[in-house]
Amino acid sequence: MFADELKTLRRLGVRHVLLQILNFVSVLASGLMIWKGLGLITNTESPIVVVLSGSMEPAFYRGDLLFLTNPPNQRYQTGDITVYKIPGADIPIVHRVLETHDLVNKDKDLVAASPLAQKQLLLTKGDNNHIDDIELYQGLEWLERKHIVGKVRGFLPYVGYVTIAMNDFPQLKYALLGGLGLLALVQRE
């Protein structure tokens, strides 16, 4: 089955194989660069996330793709859909802001350099949940800016389901990676 491919590999020689590996690595590297570049522009550690639970149905279902930004000069408002990560929890949560409280400086002599120099307390809730998220905060009373990964600005349905499928069936992941790798190696041009 692979005899033909092996024959062509032998004919093309080591240089060609190395070149293909280099190509493959450069594709990976540019992917990483695009990801990190997007992260810089949008000011979030993960500009694209996949919805993993049904707590925002019927707006977002499992497998939908969300695009985030986290502008450093904007406060969060009620109605914003935020993605937050509680320290100690490994899965980020996508929920809507229910309450915001912008605190004031106790020290009267200090003037805030920007509206964001002041602390903002947030409470969130999933559209599909009956109660707010205090139980999810693992002992915290409020969310703060430092917990927020970003807010949802764009939406693309279903596409993220590939990653969920790959998590549920790891064989699929290896098959896909192996297939792509083999393809990259034996491609002619």
Partner: peptide, 12 residues
């Protein structure tokens, strides 16, 4: 002096 925004009702 705390500025507050509180959602009291919503509907889809």
């Amino acid at each position: 002096g705390v500025r507050n925004e509180v959602v009291i009702w919503d509907r889809i």
